[in-house]
Design a binder for these strands. Structure first.
Ligand code: ZN
Ligand code: ZN
Ligand code: ZN
Ligand code: ZN
Lengths: 136, 136
DNA sequence: TTGGTATTGATAATCATTGTCAATAAGCGG
DNA sequence: CCGCTTATTGACAATGATTATCAATACCAA
């Protein structure tokens, strides 16, 4: 029940949010850190990690875990509404998609198996048009 | 097109397969290694990693990546048929489930967005009956 | 303005996974 | 059955993403 305390508004967080607002694709904490450095920011890597985690928890950014275990983040276009993604596994481009009736279906199914506190992951990956060409 | 060469039949692989056949829940490479050690096996950790990877690629075992980036493996009940899981995030119990029309729907959707080589992840997690109680 | 406390960042520590490489043992042909 | 070729093994080092430390700093409520 401990409602999480609101994060302080700091220069670093502002810069990170700004970077996220500019590029809309999925990138790792380290990549975002690079971006910031190239923009003459001095944010520390650890801080980027912390901010992204925090933002992901509050639903302000989307987070996905790749097959290799890396966590990628991007700004979430859909506000805090729950949704899913169609993502290019080559270049990181992504679009928000709608999975009709999935939520309800999942909860229902889980219930019939005696499961509760349901959560789910639906990620669709592929090669976007450009990357498909490039791969020849 | 380079068809992968068939793995040699070795004592270690046999032992690993055996362990997988006995316990049916999702466990990490290290956990499977522990199991084997407790059964007086001398398999090396690296070997367990390699075997599980190989088996996962050939579809003989299921692999899932947790939020923390760990990869869990378990024997696959459904042979090589593509399928999905309902898994307890507390104790690791898991059941194979059927997601009607999802495959077709996903491919279709991706196509309309110009994506190809579609792959997808659908994992439903929750608390199984027992763990729900335990959590009080 | 000021004190209490979050946040920061340089750096060390974790920890799952992968790489290395000499020793070993499948599988094959003779 | 007997070497030979080569995949496999395993102890151990190396990697690489993420987390923990902890003193210095910056929010922000009072
Ligand atoms: Zn989103
Ligand atoms: Zn792409
Ligand atoms: Zn599946
Ligand atoms: Zn359980």
């Amino acid at each position: 029940m401990t409602s999480k305390p609101k994060p302080r508004q700091t220069r670093q967080r502002a810069e990170i949010l700004s970077a996220l607002a500019t590029a809309g694709d999925f990138r790792s904490a380290q990549q975002w850190h690079d971006v910031l450095r190239h923009e003459s920011s001095t944010v520390g890597l650890a801080t980027v990690y912390r901010a992204l985690q925090s933002l992901a928890e509050s639903g302000e950014v989307d987070a996905v875990v790749t097959d290799s275990g890396e966590t990628l983040y991007r700004r979430c276009e859909a506000g805090d509404e729950h949704h899913h993604h169609l993502r290019c596994r080559r270049c990181g481009a992504a679009e928000e998609i709608d999975v009709p009736d999935f939520e309800a279906w999942a909860t229902q199914l889980a219930a019939t198996h005696g499961y509760s506190s349901i959560d789910h992951t639906v990620e669709i990956t592929g090669l976007c048009g450009e990357c498909a060409k490039a791969t020849n």
